[in-house]
Design a binder for these strands. Structure first.
Lengths: 341, 341
DNA sequence: CTTGGCACTCGGCCCGAACGAGTGCCAATC
DNA sequence: GATTGGCACTCGTTCGGGCCGAGTGCCAAG
């Protein structure tokens, strides 16, 4: 019973602090929430909560502020999911329905997330290694420069220009295109590279030995995973609402947003699209971002996570709202991808 | 003679203000520059410069600060080009040489510009309407979904998925591909759309009437210029060095950076790659960005400007340095594009 | 366990004084 | 006529002190 009220107090503190951005005192708390007890009692509870490390006071004669541990408890145990209203749902649906392309879907999702949460939104493009190959197109730009276009099941299209050491005839190329497509269509990208590795002998017979060089280049291109790192970022202008703590929080944030590798590490491994992951403050891998939290989830058709999307913001954020928005967007995006498949 | 010294004073004020970020007084000025006159004389000059609107004082008992008009004069008449040192030149060369793709070139240029100038860098992708078509590839994803890949002379590759109202047979598609390529290869994109417009009759004869629908979709895709608006942005973290004036300058800036349309308008029309354009403060189209300047130039093989690149920063910036960096990067990028063509 | 009371702490705010950078003007000088 | 030193003046900034009040912790009573 007592324990229960203490948690109610913690919840109240988190909610008030998030909305006012100011340390909250015992009096203000009883005024704004129906706790049914006096400020003195709340003070006792607060002392206990502080003892346990859930809240802290910035200075002796100030109110309390949740610690990372406090937010963690709040997120895990105390927050009720805040369902989006129908207007928001409709906005998501209509905005995403209109997308034509994967690129388009990603761009729109980022905008959407940023708008809904008023935070910085990040959407990772579907991971290459989890997609299957739909088609490979080879286009000779010049006799020695070859444009390869890799079309994946997720709608992602990767292009790359290869410099060939020797000229390749058009006929050989056409033959090669057919052979390659036969070999890799429907395969996961890693498997596809393997398949290609087994090809050269066959290709040499069918389409001339020179093309084996092309195959080698193709394999190399497929095994190069640096483009796994593609992400879209939006809502940076929301950083402006951080207010005060500039160098301490905005600068490292802007830096992280430029470094896509960092950003992806921050988002974390893509989890199943049904779970929303929350990483609070120091729980993340970067000390400089100790006062920022990440709310993320995987997305993809079915329950397999093709990639991650989420938001990044101050630890002092509206977790229930953010989680709801992230989950909703992930679901809609997953559905779109399913339809387009 | 007197007039000359006044301009020297203005130059000194601009330089000092840019490096210290603080209003500069008469005493400090004579200390730091060999003007050969006393502070009192400088004061007289300052009064005259203020009269003419080149400088202003924030409050009565403060030093002087250049006005936009003052910066303008400085840029036009007083600044000597600050050549990059060899280390910088080498850095540019080596970084850009390594690029494989147009995408790669653009990404690297942005990073480079941001690093060199320590400002926010913006690079526009080559404008579609000024490129010629190198190749069109058509890939059937499903019988009714068609991926079109448009490969342009600049190395830019545009893809787009078309939903077809009817199924199209593979044979028809192959035929169509050949016909389309014959029609558009080497054409500017606007002309290419026209050419396609004249095709349907011919196509109907050769490849079956259904394909005319595909052609119509292709034309629509080609005439859709919204993708002209592609830009890459980098160095946002440099905004953090703005310091103080947060809401007034960083917020609108972040907002502008998210709105690519705004950004492109800010960069201005692509000028010849030999001229660097400087737009100072209020000279730009947006009042909210009254305290930011833009240094930009066109780039592209030869002297024709395919697109614009440049930097955006506070009016109080190092113009000679920025101009030199922008020009150097534009030249190198142009050269790369030339080689790749 | 809860509550009202009470002493205590300490950050924020306001105010006035002192400071000093910088100016404008003037009369003297070159 | 331009330059210069001198001087009074302005005004933003800084610093210290005092007040205020929010908020706490503790205690004794219910």
């Amino acid at each position: 019973m007592v324990e229960e009220r203490r948690l109610a107090v913690l919840r109240a503190i988190v909610e008030d602090y998030v909305s006012t951005q100011e340390p909250v005192g015992s009096k203000a708390l009883v005024d704004r929430h129906q706790l049914g007890v006096s400020p003195a009692t709340v003070r006792n509870d607060m002392a206990a909560l502080e003892e346990e490390g859930f809240i802290a006071q910035p200075h002796t004669s100030a109110g309390r502020v949740p610690t990372d541990k406090g937010y963690r408890l709040f997120v895990d145990k105390l927050s009720t999911v805040k369902p989006l209203n129908t207007a928001e749902r409709r906005a998501i649906a209509s905005l995403l329905e209109g997308a034509v392309d994967l690129d388009d879907v990603v761009q729109r999702s980022v905008r959407l997330l940023a708008q809904l949460t008023r935070q910085v939104a990040v959407v990772q493009y579907p991971i290459l290694s989890r997609s299957t190959v739909r088609h490979v197109e080879l286009v000779a730009l010049t006799p020695t420069r070859l444009l390869t276009v890799l079309i994946l099941s997720t709608g992602r299209v990767e292009q790359r220009v290869l410099e060939l050491p020797e000229e390749v005839a058009d006929d050989d190329l056409a033959e090669l295109r057919a052979v390659v497509n036969r070999a890799v269509a429907g395969e996961r990208i890693a498997d596809a590279a393997d398949r290609l590795g087994q090809l050269p002998a066959e290709v040499a017979r069918e389409a001339g030995s020179r093309t084996s060089i092309v195959v080698a280049s193709l394999i190399e291109a497929m095994s190069d995973h640096r483009s796994d790192e593609r992400v879209a970022v939006g809502g940076t202008a929301n950083l402006a609402r951080f207010g005060e703590s500039f160098d301490a929080s905005i600068k490292p944030m802007l830096e992280a947003l430029e470094e896509h590798v960092v950003l992806l590490k921050l988002l974390g491994e893509a989890t199943s699209s049904s779970t929303v992951t929350v990483r609070i403050g120091h729980e993340g891998p970067y000390q400089q971002l100790a006062s920022t939290s990440v709310v993320a989830t995987g997305y993809g058709p079915g329950d397999e996570a093709l990639a991650t999307l989420g938001i990044v913001g101050p630890t002092r954020m509206d977790y229930p709202g953010s989680m709801a928005a992230v989950r909703a967007v992930a679901r809609y995006v997953s559905r779109i991808l399913e339809e387009q498949q």
